[in-house]
Write a protein that binds this DNA or RNA. Structure first.
Lengths: 205, 205
DNA sequence: CAGTGTGAAGCGCTTCACAGCT
DNA sequence: AGCTGTGAAGCGCTTCACACTG
């Protein structure tokens, strides 16, 4: 795939919301105002966001829902299956294995790994927990492009190194630490406490 | 508490990272460059962020770690315990009950609820799953200010309404839907698939 | 002299407003 | 007339640069 043109990160994140709105919308067409209303954003924002990916709309009519959905999914690279592995068979890891939202968007969990021998071999929602020694193999043979880190903070950097070495193209990190990864590996962090902390600032005594 | 002055949302989210850097730092002082390096941001950004909360630094020296930590925690309202309830005793809810990061920042889970009678009464990591009918009681008697929604999409708006009615001041929503809440209730959304989808745009074929 | 705090510049996202299409 | 796509304006966050301080 050629390098894709830059799209603002906030736009990419909003696309996810728009797709959900389209999914739940009944009727053949929808206007930017309709999407905006359901997504809780400005209508001009919706039109500008969508225009990054192509000219999907028809003046006077709006957007054809099926056409827009397909177009956006293709433009965002969501029209094919992506394989991911989860590293960390703790509570969070086992919650993510069966998270319905991943399947629905074409992300398929290929396997789950843990460095703790006591966990290896156990069955977690139909997945057998694999030892770290198998990671590189699985990534290569199962065509895995995404690594999801759900280990505690102390082990996270090692896991990131292992994943990068194994050849994943992207890492989603749930551990509360700033990871270093090679420049060709895309990294995104999800911090579960961040939102709570930001909230605390506005809460009363 | 009086209305607090506006602080940019990105700043509030970064504070969380800074606090972790301070926690792990050994030595009595640290410079903005040191924090920036560990947090992966610009040093000027760090100084500007911190200056929103007070003048903590000393020219030529840097920041006194203990003093800064305490100052930031107090300024952000993280120096006292906050009670939260989780609604949704599924995989995600049960992962969040025991999430160590919450405790570490003063967020205490008071109880977990579920509308499914089959789940009520079961013990989840030492918490007995409570029926929804108990929610308002618990919020009032346990001084709960935060509600965390981990139910599937279809039930989320009802849960948000119930939480708002019960009097929580803030809601953290993990369900993939745009919620409507009364203006006095602070709402933050955490979307687990968003990060993966945004990633997909940059992944190859 | 090392390092903070901050005015001002820079930059990018958001919103407006309207030409143009159906 | 209704609604999109978009140039331009608006606005806020980020970065720079430096006066100032211990």
């Amino acid at each position: 795939m050629a390098d894709r043109k830059h799209i603002p990160d906030p736009t990419l994140l909003r696309m996810c919301t728009y797709l959900r709105v389209l999914e739940r919308h009944s009727g053949p067409t929808i206007s930017s105002a309709g999407i905006a209303e359901a997504a809780g954003v400005n209508a001009a924002q919706v039109r500008k966001d969508l225009s990054f990916f192509g000219d999907f709309g028809r003046p006077g009519v709006g957007y054809h829902v099926d056409e827009l959905t397909a177009g956006v999914q293709r433009a965002m690279g969501l029209d094919r299956e992506r394989r991911a592995v989860i590293v960390g068979a703790g509570a969070l890891g086992s919650a993510l294995i069966s998270y319905p939202g991943f399947q629905a968007r074409g992300f398929r969990i290929a396997a789950i790994f843990d460095s703790n021998p006591a966990k290896v071999g156990h069955i977690l929602r139909s997945f057998e927990v694999m030892p770290m020694s198998e990671l590189a193999n699985t990534v290569a043979s199962e065509n895995v492009t995404i690594g999801i880190i759900t280990v505690p903070r102390v082990g996270a950097q090692d896991v990131a190194d292992t994943l990068a070495e194994a050849g994943v193209a992207a890492i989603v990190n749930f551990a509360p630490i700033t990871l270093r990864v090679p420049p060709h590996v895309r990294l995104r962090n999800v911090d579960l406490t961040q939102q709570l902390e930001a909230l605390a600032y506005y809460l009363g005594d």
